[in-house]
Each structure stands twice: as structure tokens, then as C-alpha cells.
Design a protein around this nucleic acid. Structure first.
Lengths: 336, 336
DNA sequence: CATACCGTCTGAATCGTTTCACCATCGACG
DNA sequence: CGTCGATGGTGAAACGATTCAGACGGTATG
């Protein structure tokens, strides 16, 4: 039981050579029917499970890719992951999910682990927009595709134009007549936050600079905290609209407003970002900037397989796919 | 670049034998300082990355575990996963997350993959409570721990007493004076659903049998659908309280009630299950049966490492850890 | 001076699978 | 009857890292 069964054991039990066992496993048609069933019986009976490490050591290529995600608890990423898995499955690959949880250290550790495993390729949403390359030992021969970030010319990437998304939100609020407008989000080190704020700033310029409420993370709890700060402002100077860097923040903010009896959208209009499922499911359904989450995942996985296959032939040109987000208007911003 | 570098290349570059390179990697103290730095320079310069497959083939043990999850989009599981990762990290292990997405087929595929990789151990929340063993090729020597399910005597497991949880919800509603009570959940094949309903049934027996609204899945969308069915009932016969098999359903139900202007909790009290973060963040904060999500994950990972280590020594006795859930009362059931 | 011993390094064997050149058997064909 | 082709099977080499018995100087010990 405890001793693991190898092809050798199977071969002995079936009275054939190891080569034949391997053939049964990989090209059954090359083997006579009688022998084949004898080998198959032995496999079944001994409970043989092929050792990937050995197979892989010989073959050089694995059938697995890794997706290193920034925050597994954020529904945005799990939706992207679903797209990834779908496309990977179509290509006959399996996906290992890893969670860097916003930690540069864990990101590095997991990348190293994935490279050591010689996975077919790696998808990664990097913690630090700039420092991707620092964490990526170059030239291991493992293709890397950036997800939800661009990576210059050095990598394939799939991203969404966050500046444009911020602009969408800003324009909409400005056109709705709001004059005191807040931006809730942080930390600034996150590229997505920077870009969304930049686009937003630009769009609301006409009505004045936005009040920035920085947060320590993109979580529901931080959204609630920002809500308290916002509620603490005198009503005459309090913003009438808030754009949150993601939906988790927006949901937290919304909850806190409800608790403090500040009406949404009458007293405060709220826009989120990502359009996760919980955004529509909130009691005051959330206006949000939608990203094609599923599509992002699919495309990323497709770029990866493309790069993998190109490696065999001639050189591969890195591509940067950029999607445009879309504003989904719901009750949280509609004033009658 | 494309050709991968092996210890042999490093050895050649540093002018030493492969054995020495290996020693630098694994027991640096056995190697002279001068030689060591020469080897390290070569490693750095060639961009050498150790091939896990080879190392592992020789060593027989990997430093990775797998966690095969039922639904990566359900925050409950991502929270459990966080606990798993934490404990695994303490034990020096890395975690690969896999998502069976409620599909028996994918569950089998991923288990096979993990076994083939000879991971140190596997945590799994099985799709089918009964058919775990069917999917688990026995005796591969890879320890398996069941999460959120019990597995008889054959596996270690960490679970929560779902019957008790259902009873908690039922008792609370019955004591609150509700007489027409609904249960929202499904499919019945899911063990968790069965148990929660059983406990619930038992507890509300005194006030009459619950009205069961079956759902096809444990998702927000299905919760909304159930809400429509519920709203379609004549007000005189409509339940005054609903217990949902998980929080996603409850959130969907809540949203639909709000949309249809059925007041929560005045017209309909709602109890969810899991107490995910979004439950507290809902605009009508949700009463919910809380499971120690994080603790479940930690304990599961600890049982796994325990079993792994015991394998070396004498026989291992499987343990079943069962936690008790706790009712968290919030506004969604409080009638003034 | 011979011996023992230490620190350092080498080289070959090993893990389990795949692959490939090669062998045996047999029927068909000229 | 010899030859040719299939067809089905064999066995050893190879993948890359680890490990272990031993080689080689050099120093301390008796």
C-alpha cells in the first residue's frame, strides 16, 4: 500500500516489459489487444498512478498552467479565473490557482514555485505594476502573461483601460450635476487605483478637484471606514457623489451610509468598479464600471497558449490586448 | 535562452562537479566558501532554476499541497482557503487551489492531476458526499483530508455540524413567533443542503412543516429566482420568514424582495448561512449561521500535515473534527 | 614515521517514465 | 523456399537533481 507502484511493478505483474506498459498508456493502438487488457488489468489491480514528475522530466513539458492572483477573496478575480479555466480546458490544460494576497514576498515565492514545477506557462496579476520584472527571473523559458496590467513590450498582457473607466465615471457624475465629488480608493501603489483616479480627475476637472479619501486596501471593511470619515463631514461640505476604486469599497461605503441613515442615491450617489455580481445584488443596486471579467480570463489563457506554441516555431511577438470598460447605471446614482 | 540550464551547465561554468552544485543548493555548509561563491555566481549568471520534477523524482516528496474547492466564486471557500494557506505556510508548504465548480468530472480530473504530481497531500470538499471514495483512487499514498464534509472513518475531516446549524435557525424563527416558514435551497444532492434542512425541519416541527423552495444551485441568481416564486404567492399564505441554505441565496432573495417592495424583515425575515463578509455588508444586514471558516481551513491543513508526518512513523488514526456553528442575529430578522 | 581524521570535492548510481533502435514471429508473395 | 512487411514486443538510454561511498590533501596524534 504505502510503497508506490511504478511501471516496473505493473510490467512484472503483467509479464511484459516496461516499454510495453508505457505504450499501453500512451499509444494503445501499438499494442496487441490481449497484452493490452492484461496490462490494464494489472494497472487496475495494483492501483498504479503515473508519476507526473518522471514523465515530465523526460518529456520536458507539463500540461499545467498557473494563475497567480492578487486577491482570491475578490470576486473580480474569481470571475477572471473562471474564464481562464474555461479557455485552458479547451486547450487541454489544467490551472493551478495561487494567491499572492497583495504580498510581494508571496508573489515571488509562488512564481519561483511555478517555475520550478516547469509549468507550461504563468498568468499573473502583479502586485507592483512597475516591479514585475524584478519578480520574474527572465529566460526560464516559461511564458508569462500579465493579467489586468500592461507590461510594456516585454510580455503579452490583457488589461482594461482604467483611465478610460475612471473618465466614464467622472463624466457621468459631472453631467448629472454633482459638484462636490469624492474618490475613494487606495493604496496609491496599486496601478489600477492610480489609473482610475487619473481618468476620473481629468473628467471632473470642470466642476472642481475631487476630494480623495485614501484607503489602505480595496476591501469592504475599508469602504466602511471611508464611509465613517465621509459621514463625519458637515453636510454642507459633504460630497454628493463618490466614485470607489472597486465594488468592495463601494459596498462597504453603501452599507455604512445605510447604517447612518444617509440616503443613497439622494444624499450620496455611489459608483463602484468591476461590476461584480454582488454589485447588482446590493439592496441599492450599484452603478458600476463593468470590466469584461470572463473575457479577460479567456483571452489571457489564449495568449498564453499562443505564446507556448509559438515557442516551438519562429519568434513570438508579444501582444497587448486592451479592453474598454462600460458604465452600468443602476439605482445607486439615479436621482428621480 | 530557450535551452534550459541544468546543474550540469552550472557545474561546467563553475568548474566543479554536479555533486558540488547540489551541495551548494542543499547543504551550503558542506562546501568551501570560495567554491560556493563561484557556484553561486554561475547560478546567477546562467539564470539557473532548479527543476522540481527531477528533484522530486529523486526525493519522493514534494512541498506542495492541493486544495480542491467546490466553488471558487463562493466567498465561504475563499475564506477557508485563506486559513489553509496560512497553516500551510507555517508548515513550509505551498498551496495549489483547484476549482471543481460542482462538477464531478472536474473533481476527478483535478484529483488525478494532483495525485500524478505526487503532492504532499490533498484537501478536498467533495461534490458528492457519498461518492468521495469513487473519485479517490485509494492507496496512492497521498493523504486526503475532507473539508466541510465528514468521510466516515476512512479519512480525516473537518466539518461543521450542519444539522445543528439548521436547528439554530429553525429554533430562532419558531421562537420569534413565525408560523409560515420557508426553506430555500438545493440541489438536494448537496450534503450541506440536506443536513441544514433536516435540522431546520426538526426545529420548526412544532409550528408546522416548512415550505421548501428548491433551487438548482447555491448562487445569488437562484436566490433571486426563488424570491420571485415567493413573491408570487398570495400575501395571506406567503411565509413570513425564510431560511436560506447559504448566504448567496439569501442575498439574492433579499435583493428581489427589495425590488418588489416586500419589506425585510417586516414582511419577510431572512436567515442566511455561512456569514460571509457580504452578509454583514448587505443593506439590510443579514442574520446568518456563522461557520468558523478560517479555523476550518487551518485545522484541515494541520490535520493534513499531521497525517503526512505520521506516515513516516507508526500507523495514523483518522480524526474527524466537527465545529459547531453560531447564530449571528442582524437586522434581517429583527422586527421592532 | 605511520596512522587517523577532517574538510572538500568527485563520480556514479538512482528515482520512474518515455522513446527509439532493434529483434522475433508470422503470413503473404513471387 | 527465400524475402519482404507488418505487427507486437524488448531493453537500454535519457531526462535533471540528489546522495553516498570514496578519493585526495593536509594536519594532528601516537
Amino acid at each position: 500500500m504505502s510503497a508506490t507502484v511504478s511501471v516496473k511493478d505493473v510490467a512484472a505483474a503483467a509479464g511484459v516489459s516496461v516499454g510495453t506498459v508505457s505504450n499501453v498508456l500512451n499509444r494503445p493502438d501499438r499494442v496487441g489487444a490481449a497484452t493490452r487488457s492484461r496490462v490494464e488489468a494489472a494497472i487496475e489491480q495494483l492501483g498504479f498512478v503515473r508519476n507526473e514528475s518522471a514523465r515530465h522530466l523526460r518529456a520536458g513539458a507539463s500540461r499545467t498552467i498557473g494563475y497567480l492572483v492578487l486577491d482570491a477573496a475578490n470576486p473580480f478575480f474569481t470571475d477572471v479565473a473562471k474564464g481562464v479555466e474555461e479557455a485552458a480546458r479547451d486547450a487541454g490544460l489544467a490551472v493551478f490557482l495561487c494567491n499572492s494576497d497583495n504580498s510581494r514576498q508571496r508573489e515571488r515565492d509562488y512564481l519561483e514555485l511555478l517555475f520550478e514545477q516547469r509549468v507550461r506557462g504563468v498568468l499573473v496579476t502583479p502586485v507592483d505594476p512597475a516591479g514585475v520584472e524584478a519578480s520574474l527571473p527572465p529566460g526560464v523559458g516559461v511564458p508569462v502573461v500579465l493579467v489586468d496590467r500592461t507590461g510594456g513590450e516585454k510580455y503579452c498582457s490583457v488589461s482594461v483601460d482604467d483611465v478610460y473607466g475612471g473618465r466614464l465615471a467622472g463624466q457621468y457624475l459631472a453631467e448629472s450635476g454633482h459638484e462636490r465629488i469624492a474618490f475613494v480608493g487606495g493604496p496609491e501603489s496599486v496601478g489600477q487605483v492610480q489609473d482610475r483616479l487619473a481618468g476620473f480627475r481629468e473628467a471632473v476637472e470642470g466642476v472642481g478637484a475631487p476630494i480623495v479619501l485614501p484607503t489602505a486596501a480595496l476591501t469592504v471593511a475599508e469602504g466602511r471606514a471611508a464611509g465613517q470619515r465621509l459621514a463625519g463631514m458637515p453636510a454642507s461640505r459633504r460630497p454628493t457623489a463618490a466614485f470607489c476604486a472597486n465594488d468592495l469599497l463601494a459596498l462597504g461605503l453603501l452599507q455604512e451610509m445605510t447604517r447612518l441613515r444617509i440616503r443613497v442615491p439622494e444624499d450620496l450617489a455611489i459608483i463602484g468598479y468591476d461590476d461584480i455580481e454582488f454589485a447588482a445584488a446590493a439592496a441599492v443596486p450599484l452603478t458600476s464600471v463593468r470590466q469584461p471579467r470572463h473575457q479577460i480570463g479567456r483571452t489571457a489563457a489564449e495568449l498564453l497558449t499562443e505564446e507556448t506554441e509559438a515557442a516551438d516555431g519562429r519568434a513570438h511577438r508579444h501582444r497587448q490586448v486592451v479592453y474598454l470598460p462600460e458604465l452600468i447605471v443602476r439605482e445607486s446614482t439615479i436621482t428621480a
